[in-house]
Design a protein around this nucleic acid. Structure first.
Lengths: 115, 115
DNA sequence: TCAGTATATAATAATATGCTTATATAAGTA
DNA sequence: TACTTATATAAGCATATTATTATATACTGA
């Protein structure tokens, strides 16, 4: 049993509902590795910008991700302070690594980095 | 990392979608303890019989539960052979125990047992 | 075989979801 | 300031989800 033991069913089912979408589930898996900005996700998922934006908003509304502006981009990050963060990370362990996909983005020169 | 490592995102997101419902999530938590028949769930969730039946069908269709007839009742059980069984059990660990709720059912004399 | 009980299925209606297109906002830059 | 880029939001539409009601099916026991 873990540190977050005894989350309530209501909360967990809401989290599960959000992760019950392939795009959002993959987003969370990738956000375990590093932060991403919207335009990177647009490339990665080959999906329209508003569609991506709406998925991210849902994740943000429930608190699973945080956003922060850096220069002209808005970066999203995994919120490891969320009640269910431990549960979610546990779950994501079962999914295949996404580094390859990330490497492709890099190869296409579409990776955004700002330091 | 676990024995089921590297489930595909498609499959996991489907499972998550199913568990993204409070009733089904609780059902799975309870089925970890023991088998249940439909009428017990109807009492436990205070929900119509067809509604319960439809939730169970979804869980059965995806393979998370198995059914078996015993006398006039159909009992549902947790399918621990499912690809994602380990993942699901991991997840359910984070939820509150349901023994109390079960005790109530027992107290009301609504528990079905057939040996 | 018939009645009663347990369960499943079908049709339907209300609501939720996820995309699209169009537009607004906000920051960076000439 | 005006233009461009990055992102968010709103409206609309197609589809999915979940419950309800009505009905069908399958056992059990007299």
């Amino acid at each position: 049993m873990n540190a977050d033991t005894r989350l309530d069913v209501q909360e967990v089912s809401q989290i599960m509902k959000l992760l019950g979408d392939k795009t959002r589930l993959t987003m969370m898996k990738m956000l375990q590795l590093q932060d991403f900005c919207v335009c990177e996700f647009v490339e990665l998922f080959n999906m329209s910008q508003p569609a991506i934006s709406q998925h991210l908003r849902k994740l943000k509304d429930i608190g699973l991700v945080k956003e922060s502006r850096k220069k002209q981009w808005i970066f999203y990050s995994f919120n490891r302070n969320h009640d269910c963060a431990f549960l979610v990370e546990d779950l994501l362990k079962h999914l295949p690594d996404q580094r390859e996909r990330l490497a492709e983005l890099e190869a296409q020169g579409l990776r955004i980095s700002c330091d």
